[in-house]
């Protein structure tokens, strides 16, 4: 039964996500693309794009979308797939919320505790590595095309470089006056890349 597997997989993902939605990407990729094979690497990257462009927490958006697609892929209809989407979001927050409610008082009292502090410090640092792993695993043929001097690969690398550099612009922007480069939101960057894709491949 697909619902049980979706519930179990997202329960696990929720419990082991430290460091926000981007750190969750590598957990979801590992479970959903590699182990369960509900989605191809291409579909997964497309879902990430949609999750970043639409409002809301990235983790919730990705879980909802993956839940829908996994159910639909298993051959169920639209309404059953909507059920899968809601179930995935519910499962991904169930354990963290329960845990949060249980410890919200306890942890406040123990915030200075040496063991609690050092475990959380290590987890916050490791989360950066998890995000890096997610980015590295997306450097694949599906995202960039075959490696070499072909138009798809060169165009992909150019888009990557421009978006990467623009994402590193600090929140308050760079430079002054007319030359000021503002911080661009992910939605602007994704829409511009989509337009570039249409101009390069679609015409």
């Amino acid at each position: 039964m697909i619902y049980f597997r979706i519930f179990w997989v997202f329960l696990k993902i929720g419990l082991f996500t430290f460091g926000g939605g981007y750190a969750m990407v590598s957990l979801i990729e590992n479970e959903v693309v590699e182990r369960q094979q509900w989605l191809t690497a291409e579909e997964f990257t497309d879902i990430l794009a949609v999750s970043q462009m639409t409002p809301g927490p990235i983790g919730i958006n990705t879980a909802t979308y993956v839940g829908y697609t996994a159910t639909a892929q298993a051959g169920y209809g639209t309404w059953a797939s909507v059920g899968g989407a809601v179930l995935a979001s519910f499962a991904v927050i169930l354990l963290p919320v329960t845990l949060m409610l249980l410890v919200v008082r306890f942890l406040m009292r123990h915030r200075g505790n040496r063991d609690v502090e050092s475990v959380f410090a290590a987890l916050r640092i490791t989360a950066i590595g998890l995000i890096a792993a997610a980015a590295l695993s997306l450097f694949n043929v599906e995202s960039f095309g075959n490696f070499g001097w072909n138009s798809r690969f060169v165009a992909s690398c150019a888009i990557f470089a421009v978006v990467f550099l623009l994402s590193l612009v600090p929140r308050k922007g760079l430079g002054k006056g007319k030359l000021r480069l503002p911080k661009l939101s992910p939605i602007v960057l994704i829409l511009a890349s989509g337009l570039a894709g249409f101009l390069i491949y679609g015409l």
């Binding site: 460091g19 981007y22 990407v25 291409e42 990257t45 497309d46 990430l48 794009a49 970043q52 916050r124 640092i125 989360a127 950066i128 995000i131 890096a132 997610a134 980015a135 997306l138 450097f139 599906e142 995202s143 960039f144 798809r152 165009a155 992909s156 690398c157 888009i159 990557f160 470089a161 421009v162 978006v163 990467f164 994402s167 590193l168 992910p186 960057l189 994704i190 511009a192 890349s193 989509g194 337009l195 570039a196 894709g197 249409f198 390069i200 491949y201 679609g202």
Partner: peptide
């Protein structure tokens, strides 16, 4: 064709926070 353009941008959007977070966590 639109998504062929978007996919490398998504990778860049995930790679960038690695560096800003590393700075914020004072690695």
């Amino acid at each position: 064709s639109i998504f062929l353009g978007i996919r490398p941008a998504v990778v860049a959007l995930i790679a960038a926070p690695v560096f800003s977070l590393a700075k914020r966590q004072h690695l």
